[in-house]
Simulated assay, not measured.
Amino acid sequence: MMHIAPVYGFEFTRPFSAAGLSFTPCETNSSSAKRIARDLSAHHMTGTIAANAIDRETIYELEGVLSFIEHLDVMVLEPISAHQAEPDPTKAFEPTLIARRRHNGGGAVIGSDAFNPCKNSRQQFIELCLTHLKDKTFCDKTRFRSLLFKSVETFRQRQPFLEITYFLLISGLEAFCRACQGDYTSRNAAIPITNQLKLYGFNVFQDNSGELSRSISTYLHIRNALFHQGDFTSTVNINHGLVQFNCSQHLFNLSMLCSLTVMKAIGFDDGHTNWDCWIDRELHR
């Protein structure tokens, strides 16, 4: 029997199918869809999903994937039978949930179906990501699940703390890159991280004082300062000169780099993503 579940806070304006799930939007007007999807004060129902079976693990994974896309908390409630949802599924569920305030994670990392030059970017990402999450061998080998959900938890915290956000990002990235590289022995985590990111085509360095944002050691210096000294800045002697690293200054770079790594890990490429946006902040090309 077909089951239907409501989705709260995910922006889409076109029906589509991905990973065995059929998505139907509540709003087809792009302005209205964006307004209700990105309201930080409440979760508004933005559509429904339908499938023969929607178990709790699928809901958990789908919430994570949709939240990752929006970089905002997205909710998917327990499904009901299609018979219970007749004649209008949108009337069978609460239109608004005011469960908790949503924290903006910096803006959606994949463009909406209304304005992205590739109209099915979100559909493509959902299909790839859910398929990879279901692949236990892949997740065990790469620790991809940890990378994805640690990234998502940075903005799903009840009260985001800078040091916790930073730890989730850098620890998820390190674990993923060490697993992919099979390198669990290098004392310098910059080695496996740099090697893996270079394989994905990112312009990064292990250590380059001339380009601190592209230097993986920058993010590790900041991590050490946060968790060993409790400081948000780190001053390091490089080439007989003192260089200061600031956590808030480089947090965007790290967050976006982790997001792009998630996309690379599952083979997502809509042809319009700017893979250097973690530096220049231009998401699309």
Rank of each mutant, 00 (worst) to 15 (best):
D270V: 06
F252D: 04
S17D: 09
V243N: 09
S22A: 13
N239M: 12
S151D: 11
A92N: 01
A99W: 04
S259W: 00
L220C: 10
H3F: 02
T28L: 04
T131C: 03
N274S: 12
I279S: 04
E78A: 13
A42K: 06
C277T: 12
A92D: 03
A37C: 08
A99M: 02
W278C: 11
I216L: 11
Y8P: 03
I49Q: 06
F227E: 06
A51R: 11
H103M: 01
F149V: 07
C180L: 09
A50E: 15
D73H: 08
G201T: 00
Y200T: 04
R100A: 14
F10C: 07
R145D: 15
S17M: 03
F125Y: 12
N116Y: 01
L97A: 03
P192G: 01
W278K: 08
E27K: 14
S112D: 11
F144N: 02
H71T: 12
L173N: 07
R14C: 08
P79I: 07
A179P: 05
K134H: 09
Q181G: 04
R214M: 09
K119L: 14
R101L: 06
H44R: 10
Y219G: 09
I98A: 13
N52C: 11
F268D: 06
H83A: 15
W278A: 08
Y200E: 05
D73P: 00
F138S: 03
A19Q: 04
T58Y: 06
L168V: 06
R223D: 09
F12A: 04
P89Q: 10
Q123C: 12
F202E: 02
L283G: 04
